[in-house]
């Protein structure tokens, strides 16, 4: 069987400055995977390059054995929350409905079935009572949940999420984690850019450490080691301490 995600030799550069350099990454089995690395390491860039949102200088990407362009309907995407204008005149349900647009095809309007499905997805993230609200009236965490509901509505096999837990409160982070775990149990793959080293061992079972180049990737237990983190972050002690604690917390967790 072909791997879920096969990133081969991907280089992305702005002008001549590389942001990603010869990145090879293969995910064979369904995983709940984190992409971790310092600021400016190219984490978001990797996701965007894989999805074809920004051009690659070289390299190729295959999803489930086919080029990305042929697998669009199997791919879900959660952009960074800051990437859109929350003042835009759409309701919460409208945004979730956008998740069905990829399957609908050109010119077709979403009908009753799509609305019903979008409502179910919204219900999954616990925001049913807000479906008619303008999106700007939600809190930051709720906005993130709306984006997740939209991704659920895509019925994808592999989800790319750009910092899904950034800037949300602890309770929302827990809800998001439960959702990701549920998706994973349904056999889906989630690849999320993650910023909080402490929670990597708690939330994820697979990790890719990135700093322009891929430093290491694999199961969290074997890959998320102080040595690999040092290679990724350089000698920044505070971070390493935090990671050390996280490792300890992770090994103590049942």
């Amino acid at each position: 069987m072909s791997p879920i995600l096969d990133i081969h030799d991907v280089t992305v550069a702005y002008q001549r400055k590389p942001v990603l350099w010869d990145v090879d990454l293969i995910i064979e089995q369904p995983q709940l995977a984190a992409i971790v690395g310092p600021n400016g390491a190219g984490k978001s860039t990797l996701i965007k390059a894989v999805l074809g949102l920004i051009p690659m200088a070289s390299g190729s990407v295959q999803v489930l054995g086919e080029p990305v362009a042929r697998q669009r309907k199997k791919i879900g995407y959660v952009p960074q929350r800051e990437s859109v204008d929350w003042d835009f005149p759409v309701s919460v349900l409208d945004v979730v409905l956008m998740g069905t647009y990829g399957r609908l095809g050109w010119f077709r309007r979403p009908g009753h079935a799509e609305r019903e499905w979008a409502r179910q997805c919204l219900n999954k993230v616990g925001l049913s009572q807000f479906e008619r609200r303008q999106i700007g009236q939600l809190s930051g965490g709720q906005q993130q949940l709306v984006f997740l509901a939209r991704a659920l509505a895509q019925k994808a096999e592999i989800y790319f999420m750009d910092e899904p837990m950034a800037g949300v409160d602890a309770a929302t982070e827990q809800i998001i984690f439960e959702l990701l775990r549920e998706l994973r149990q349904q056999g889906k793959t989630i690849i999320a850019v993650h910023h909080d080293l402490r929670t990597v061992p708690l939330y994820f079972d697979w990790v890719a450490l990135l700093n322009m180049r891929l430093v290491a990737s694999g199961p969290v237990e074997t890959t998320f080691t102080p040595e690999n983190l040092r290679k990724t972050y350089g000698g920044r002690l505070a971070i390493l301490d935090a990671a050390g604690e996280a490792m300890k917390a992770g090994s103590e967790a049942p």
Partner: peptide, 15 residues
């Protein structure tokens, strides 16, 4: 529908 998504969330439309 297409213009709406492109105007609201270009990255999502591209994805």
């Amino acid at each position: 529908k297409e213009f709406k998504v492109v105007a609201f969330d270009t990255g999502f439309a591209r994805s």
